[in-house]
C-alpha cells in the first residue's frame, strides 16, 4: 500500500482524480437513494402549497436569518413531542426550497407555532418581544410593519417554485400578484380567488392590524400562522397516536 502510494504521489492528475473518487462515495451512497426510495417522504394527500403571501413571509423569515435561532424540526424524542407537538415528518417540508430545519434553538422550535398565538400577539411580539416575553433576547423587528410588501415580481417567484417541483398550477402563477394582496384584505374582491385556489381553510385576514397597506409584517405573520398546518399527516401518524393515547 505504501509502495503504491509512493508511486501515486508522483502524478498530480492521477492523485487529484483519486481524491475526487474517494471523496464522492459517501455522499453518493447517502444522498442519491433519498431521491429514489419512496418511503423517504410519506404521502400527504391533504397537503397544500404556500399561498403567495405565505411564501413572501417565508422569504422574509429567510432574509432576517430567523433560522439561525429557531428550528423547524421536532425530533422524535418524548420531551420534544410534549413541548412542541407531534414530531416532524418529511412530508411536511416537501415543498420547502430550501428547508428551514435549523440547527440551533436560541429561541423555541417553530414547526407547529401556527395558530398557537393570535395575530395581535405576533404584532406586539415583532415590535418588541419583551412586551409579551419579558426575558426574551430576540431583537425587535419594527421595520417589518413599516415596510410595504413589493409584490411586483411575485409571479416570477411562483414560476421558479414550479420549476423546482412545487405543484403550483399555471392559474396560481398567473394570479400570484393579486392573491398576494387578496389574502390580507378580507373585504376585498381578490380574497375569493385565494380561497378558490388554496382552499377554504386558508387564513384570509389583515394580519398586522393595519388595513391601509400590505406590509412585510402581514406576510411574516401569515407564514408563521401556517407553520405545521399545511397538512394533518403528522397528527394522523399511527406512532404519534399511540404515544398520545386514547382521547
Amino acid at each position: 500500500m505504501f509502495n503504491f502510494h509512493y508511486r501515486l504521489e508522483r502524478y498530480s492528475i492521477r492523485f487529484a482524480i483519486l481524491v475526487v473518487i474517494v471523496a464522492s462515495i459517501g455522499g453518493f451512497v447517502e444522498i442519491a437513494p433519498l431521491f429514489t426510495i419512496d418511503e423517504t417522504v410519506e404521502p400527504a394527500p391533504d397537503m397544500r402549497v404556500y399561498t403567495p403571501l405565505e411564501l413572501a413571509g417565508r422569504n422574509i423569515y429567510i432574509r432576517e436569518g430567523c433560522y439561525a435561532c429557531h428550528s423547524q424540526m421536532i425530533r422524535s424524542l418524548r420531551d420534544e413531542v410534549e413541548r412542541y407537538g407531534p414530531y416532524s415528518l418529511a412530508a411536511e417540508s416537501q415543498y420547502d426550497h430550501p428547508m428551514l430545519w435549523g440547527s440551533k434553538r436560541t429561541g423555541p422550535d417553530l414547526a407547529r407555532v401556527g395558530g398557537k398565538y393570535s395575530d395581535y400577539w405576533h404584532v406586539v411580539h415583532m415590535n418588541n418581544p419583551r412586551d409579551v416575553v419579558p426575558e426574551s433576547v430576540m431583537p425587535s423587528y419594527r421595520w417589518l410593519g413599516r415596510n410595504e410588501l413589493e409584490p411586483a415580481d411575485f409571479d416570477l417567484h411562483l414560476r421558479a417554485q414550479q420549476k423546482v417541483g412545487v405543484p403550483y398550477t399555471d392559474e396560481m402563477v398567473a394570479n400570484a400578484i393579486n392573491d398576494l394582496s387578496g389574502q390580507a384584505n378580507p373585504d376585498g374582491k381578490r380574497a375569493e380567488g385565494v380561497l378558490a385556489r388554496y382552499g377554504e381553510a386558508t387564513n384570509i385576514r389583515d394580519f398586522d392590524g393595519d388595513p391601509t397597506k400590505v406590509t412585510e409584517l402581514d406576510a411574516l405573520i401569515a407564514y408563521l400562522q401556517i407553520l405545521g398546518r399545511l397538512t394533518e399527516v403528522a397528527h394522523q401518524n399511527p406512532v404519534m397516536k399511540k404515544l398520545e393515547g386514547p382521547k
Binding site: 447517502e30 444522498i31 433519498l34 431521491f35 423517504t40 417522504v41 422569504n59 418529511a90 412530508a91 411536511e92 417540508s93 416537501q94 415543498y95 420547502d96 426550497h97 430550501p98 428547508m99 430545519w101 415580481d153 416570477l156 417567484h157 414560476r159 421558479a160 417554485q161 420549476k163 423546482v164 417541483g165 412545487v166
Partner: peptide, 22 residues
Amino acid sequence: AIPISLMHAKSYSAFSGVQDAM
C-alpha cells in the same frame, strides 16, 4: 438553484425538505 430571473438576486434551491437537509 433556480433564480427567479437573471435580473433578480433571489433564487430557490433545487432541493427541498429532507433531500435538501441531507
